[in-house]
Design a protein around this nucleic acid. Structure first.
Lengths: 160, 160
DNA sequence: GCGCTATACTTGAGGGCACAACTATGGCAA
DNA sequence: TTGCCATAGTTGTGCCCTCAAGTATAGCGC
């Protein structure tokens, strides 16, 4: 039973490795980010997306899609960031339904500080394990996976 | 600003893709598993590990390591599986501290049923996106990532 | 045998997230 | 204009998980 192992399909191996690696990595990186900067992994991602956005602000719904969170998830997450003063609300002149999340100066500063140690953590994780070309391959392959909930949903729909 | 994008290091691209893909995929697969079988992704993984284990049972601590959960996480997870009758406790004769989690017949049956649709979901996700050789590459690369919390921790420790 | 530390597990408290239900606004068609 | 559906966002509820603290057993030096 030890040597005569059943040959499992590679997609299963990929998937299990994926799950375990994610759990292990996020646990560590998340704890590190929380300990040193009081931020969640998603907090960080949100600040990052805002910093890259036009005018440092995004609609909550777009933000939710970027970080793969539900609408309510984004509401709660931004609640925290607003309390900390890292983002603020902004209303939309042309559509009263939307409210923007805007990165504050304080938020940008926080991101900058957090990035220093967080990026180092990521580097240590990936650069120590892969060569340059392997990283390229990995990035390319991973990018092909569904990056939004919608992409994912369609692929598991056709049933009968 | 659209064309002249800043070149980001590949480990960051890999990491962000990794995060987003995980969020999107687990949200869908988890919801599917929950809807159709009332199981969590981790519930499923635990049942799976038990089914592969010698005698269908494992120490809680080893189980925790396999699915990358804390000791308390495993306690809570098994609580639910025990209530559902899919696993049961077993004491260890030689060490009174350890208690085994043992797969019941009902649990094995549940796993078998759940596997049918769950594996199909995974297949649809991966097989539609990668060729055979790409899957091999992906599985190999992913397997190199830390698969336990300890593996992960060591790599981010050396600081000053 | 007596402490000391390590290990296995449980419990209380709290945070993050999803789902469902709800409000409010926008846009379109008759 | 009125009705109807879509979209943006919030709130109540509950699950899952972690951390910190606590209990119980094991193993070891003395």
């Amino acid at each position: 039973m030890a040597t005569r192992t059943i040959k499992r399909p590679q997609q299963i191996d990929s998937w299990v490795s994926f799950l375990r690696a994610h759990a292990a990595i996020t646990r560590e990186l998340s704890a590190q980010l929380q300990r040193e900067h009081g931020l969640t992994l998603n907090d960080y991602e949100v600040l990052l997306h805002l910093s890259h956005a036009e005018g440092g602000r995004m609609r909550r719904v777009d933000l939710a899609q970027q970080v793969v969170l539900t609408a309510s998830g984004i509401t709660r997450l931004l609640e925290g960031l607003e309390r900390s003063g890292f983002v603020c609300k902004e209303t939309c002149a042309s559509d009263a339904r939307v409210s923007y999340a805007k990165l504050t100066g304080e938020g940008a500063a926080k991101l900058k500080v957090a990035a220093a140690t967080h990026l180092r953590g990521i580097d240590e994780l990936f650069l120590s394990r892969y060569s340059g070309s392997e990283l390229t391959t990995l990035a390319e392959l991973l990018a092909r996976l569904p990056l939004t909930g919608a992409d994912c949903k369609t692929s598991s729909e056709p049933c009968s």
